[in-house]
């Protein structure tokens, strides 16, 4: 009466062993499960298969703490691009770049330095974050399984487009401050006398690890200005399109009061632009080529009934009288 049952193959046994291992890994198997498992593993073949699965799980455990991604520098024409990749990713990065790969493995304990000496450059990091560095900027980056950390040297400005990765917050250290983000676009301008963080997309948190009460959350369209010397932290609004305007060499305005236009010019150039009360109500729509504050103020004279006067360290814009 009994039908001959095919003997389980090694592959069958192995897949049952994987099933047991995964159930055990969950750590919530009931009594009946344990009794069944204990019976199953009495069989030496089953024990050997289960041992094999444990060895494989052990490899995965080790991979979880595997070293930080190693770095390769891929050279090609155009702006240099840095690829970060772990293990097998190396070959992939090389084939995308399609050219010479210089191994930079183990450089300074997984920390890499990027600088934009005389011209702006864009750096693509392994997590697909893009960082545009303004000429004269220096950034170091250290990524691992848990952190994405970059540091900016004073005198740097960088526009970030950070990829989303909730498990690995993206942190930027600028002197004593820390900017912490989760997938967003923003600009950090870190100068010796003033630091400015402006957000075009998402949410950014700026803090001073030494002073926990000084934490500012910025959303798209907001900017924070910190005077290095004092305790002066002030926020103001910006047009998201104008964050990182230096990359596009222009400022864009859409029916904005002249006071806002002036504050964006100030942001971009660090020169104070004052608006006389009579001119404050004027509105401007248009595109200004990014230049010095005086150049941009002069350009505004072509569009609005205003006159720009250069004073020591600032520019004053007054309403122009229409001549009779």
């Amino acid at each position: 009466m009994t039908e001959a049952k095919p003997l389980p193959t090694a592959a069958d046994v192995r897949s049952v062993a994987v099933g047991w291992a995964l159930r055990i890994e969950r750590q919530d198997m009931d009594d009946a499960g344990w009794v069944e498992f204990t019976g199953w593993i009495e069989n030496p073949d089953h024990l050997a298969a289960f041992e094999g699965v444990q060895r494989r799980l052990g490899l995965i455990d080790r991979a979880v703490t595997a070293p930080a991604p190693t770095a390769t520098v891929a050279k090609r024409s155009g702006p240099p691009v840095i690829w970060w990749a772990a293990g097998g990713g190396l070959a992939l990065a090389a084939s995308i770049a399609g050219v010479l790969v210089l191994a930079a493995r183990g450089m300074g304990g997984g920390e890499l330095e990027f600088d934009a000496v005389s011209e702006a450059r864009t750096v693509a990091l392994s997590d697909h974050t893009e960082v545009a560095l303004r000429p004269g900027s220096v950034m170091t980056a250290a990524f691992d399984g848990r952190h994405r950390a970059v540091k900016l040297r004073p005198g740097s400005e960088a526009a970030f487009d950070v990829s989303k990765d909730h498990a690995r917050p993206f942190e930027i250290t600028i002197g004593q401050r820390l900017v912490r983000v989760l997938g967003t676009a923003f600009d950090v301008n870190y100068q010796p006398d003033v630091t400015r963080v402006a957000v075009s997309r998402g949410v950014v948190e700026v803090s001073s690890p030494g002073e926990p009460e000084r934490t500012v959350i910025l959303t798209a369209g907001q900017a924070l200005k910190i005077r290095q010397a004092g305790a002066d932290w002030s926020t103001h609004s910006v047009r998201p399109e104008n964050v990182g305007a230096w990359r596009r060499h222009r400022l864009i305005f859409n029916n904005q009061p002249l006071s806002e236009v002036a504050s964006e010019i100030t942001d971009a150039t660090d020169v104070a632009v004052e608006i006389s009360p009579a001119a404050a109500a004027l509105r401007f729509s248009g595109v200004l080529k990014l230049g010095s504050a005086a150049e941009m103020a002069n350009a505004l004279q072509l569009f609005l009934p205003v006159r720009a006067k250069a004073m020591p360290g600032r520019i004053v814009m007054e309403r122009r009288r229409i001549s009779p």
Partner: peptide, 17 residues
């Protein structure tokens, strides 16, 4: 073995977020 560990580490990076 080391290569395997590196391959797994890469695959972990490629898991859905």
């Amino acid at each position: 073995r080391t290569e395997t560990v590196m391959a797994i580490a890469t695959a972990i990076e490629e898991l859905p977020v």
